[in-house]
Structure formats: structure tokens, C-alpha cells
Amino acid sequence: MFNPRAAGPMEQFEILPIVPLKFGNYDISLTNSSLWMLIGTGAIILFFAFATRKSNLVPGRTQAMAETFYEFVSDLVRDTIGPEGRKFFPYVFTLFIWILIANLFGLLPSFPGIPHELHTFTPTSHLIVTLALAMVTITIVILYGFYKNGLGFFKLFAPSGVPLWLMPILVPVEVISFLSRPLSLAIRLFANMFAGHVILKLFAGFVVSLIGTGSAVMLFGIAPFLGAIAVTALEFLVAALQAYVFAVLTCIYLNDAVHASDH
């Protein structure tokens, strides 16, 4: 009798080494997470190399698509930060496209029967990855903020037009809100990816477990199966939306750094 085993909802997040590597005391092995970072980044590079192999006055399909991405992020940066935002455009663009592809490729189905190490993996479902990206953004904000505004960057915590007696309350609130930015940025993306994949795997697990009963109860598997399909569609939306949200918030924080002393 066919008796499938439903993988636990957390098993998909396990990191498994493929090629062990050491750097000093640090284990920097090529893992399933690294593999999917490489696959996603490689796909992006291939796409853009193909799209820009020759620049046509009348763009072909890939060039038009690459230009659509370009204009989309370029407009976002210009609308949020203004003309000074131009220098951050490559960073925001890379951030958006990297997160978008990492999220989307995580939704690809795994080939049945291949080793667990090669299963589809979503690098952005790990907090350390999203936290690192958020820290890069906040580091740029702080460094550029001080470089551009000097000590005027601290005006960010003391908005103008606020009565002086409010400052003792307002400044700590602003400082806390500033410090919580990297955390909220990182956790928002991580939690969306994590929760989406857990729900997907739970629905899928129900289907497998119900099939495993081997009786007419199997038919009840249709409901979670349809649920899994619906959640998959939703996850595609979430994948794109969270990449966009990350890029937008990065732009908003960078805008603070650029215009801190204008407050």
C-alpha cells in the first residue's frame, strides 16, 4: 500500500550542506540556501545579460521587460527620494530584483524524489538573510545621513515645529522608531515568507496524510488540496508585494538620510 510520509512544516526550512567549506573558524559551506541564492542570482544575471546583449532602439521582448523593471524602480526611487536618489538606484534595484527572484523561485515545485538538499528553498525565509539586507539598508542610511547632513542628521529625531516641552517624550519615541526599523524591515519579509510556506506545507501535509489513510476519507483531501492551490496563488502575490515593500521602505529610509536636515 502506498504510504507517503508528510514532511513536517518546518523541514522545508532546514539548512543542509552540499559542499562543505571552511573559512577560519566559520563554516561557510555551500548549502541548499546558498544553492538557491546562486540559482536566483544566476537567473537574474542571465536574464539581464541577454536583455542588454545589444541595445535596440525598438526593444525586443527581454529588453522591454528589463526596461519595465528599470523604469519601475527608477520611478519609485525618483518619486520617493527625488533627484538625489539617483545614486541609490542601483542598490534599490538590486535589492528589489534579488528579493523578488528569491521569493518567487522559492515557490517553484521540487522535482519528486530528489534528495532533500536539492529541494526548492527560499533564502528570504531565513531571518538572518533578511536581517542582513535590512542592516545594509540602515547602515547606508546612517553613514550617508552623517556624511550628507553632519550632526544635522540628529534633526531626524527632533521634528521641527514641535513645542519644546514635547521633546523629552518625542525624541525617545523617534529614536526607538528609528532603531526598530531594521527589525521591522527584516521581520516583515521573513515572517511573510515563513508563514506562507508553513501554511502551504500544512495544507500539502493534510493532503498527504489523508491519502495515507487509504480509505474513502482520502476524498476529504480535495479541500486542503484546493486550499494549497489558492495559497500558492496568494504566495505569488505576497512574493512580489514583499519585494516591493522592502524596496519602498528602503527608499523612504534613504529619503530620511538625504533630507534629514530639511525637517
Partner: peptide, 12 residues
């Protein structure tokens, strides 16, 4: 696996 993730993230 944090160092590995950070290393490959930085690389890619």
C-alpha cells in the same frame, strides 16, 4: 548556518 548564509548572501 548563519555564517554560511551571510557569506553566500554577500557573495551573490
Amino acid at each position: 548556518w548563519w555564517p554560511s548564509q551571510l557569506f553566500w548572501l554577500a557573495l551573490t
